[in-house]
């Protein structure tokens, strides 16, 4: 310090915090998907070239590079293609551990997405399990995946491995 009574030592670190504000838009196709969630349904899009159905669709076919324009309403049920049991606590965790994170292939879709699985003990989850979405109350539906509370077993027999092996 200027008076010579330094106890701080030399500077070795510099804090350079950055904060930036953006206006995010998910685009046309993902907005449709999110608006579908607001109505309590899963909306996907089919590629006119390869016929694959994407949910959520980002507006183009990642295989063919063409715009996806045909909207497809998908079922409320699907198949667990793979899963993991989360036992590790982390900052911001909203769900009590252990819980199951599953990749779910909705009926009619060619792309799985990640969902929370509940109403089943963690040691009974298995690949091929048939599950259904449980939605929040109608008044609480919003254009967000938060409208899906979780998935749970729907009671149907497990799907045959051949029906989902392409989606692992």
């Amino acid at each position: 310090m200027a008076d010579g009574t330094t106890d701080q030592g030399p500077v070795t670190m510099l804090a350079t915090p950055i904060s930036l504000d953006f206006e995010f838009t998910p685009g046309v196709a993902q907005s449709k998907f999110l608006r579908g969630l607001e109505r309590g349904e899963f909306l996907g899009q089919r590629c006119g070239t390869c016929g694959q159905v994407y949910v959520p669709s980002r507006g183009t076919c990642p295989t063919d590079g063409v715009a996806t324009t045909e909207d497809v309403v998908l079922g409320n049920s699907g198949t667990v293609t793979t899963y993991c049991v989360v036992n590790v606590p982390f900052a911001g965790q909203a769900i009590e551990i252990p819980y199951i994170c599953a990749q779910i292939l909705l009926d009619g879709a060619n792309l799985s997405f990640m969902g929370l699985l509940q109403e089943i003990p963690t040691d009974q989850i298995r690949m091929g399990m048939r599950v259904e979405a449980v939605w929040v109350d109608e008044a609480e539906l919003i254009p967000s995946l938060a409208s899906v509370k979780y998935f749970r077993p729907n009671g149907e027999p497990d799907a045959d491995y051949d029906t989902y092996k392409e989606y692992l």
Partner: peptide, 23 residues
């Protein structure tokens, strides 16, 4: 129908200065 949302991105960087910048 197209959605928009406010989005804040923050990086709490702390950089080591090295001897010259530190001096």
């Amino acid at each position: 129908e197209v959605l928009h949302a406010e989005h804040r991105l923050e990086y709490p960087y702390a950089r080591s200065t090295g001897p010259i910048i530190g001096a």
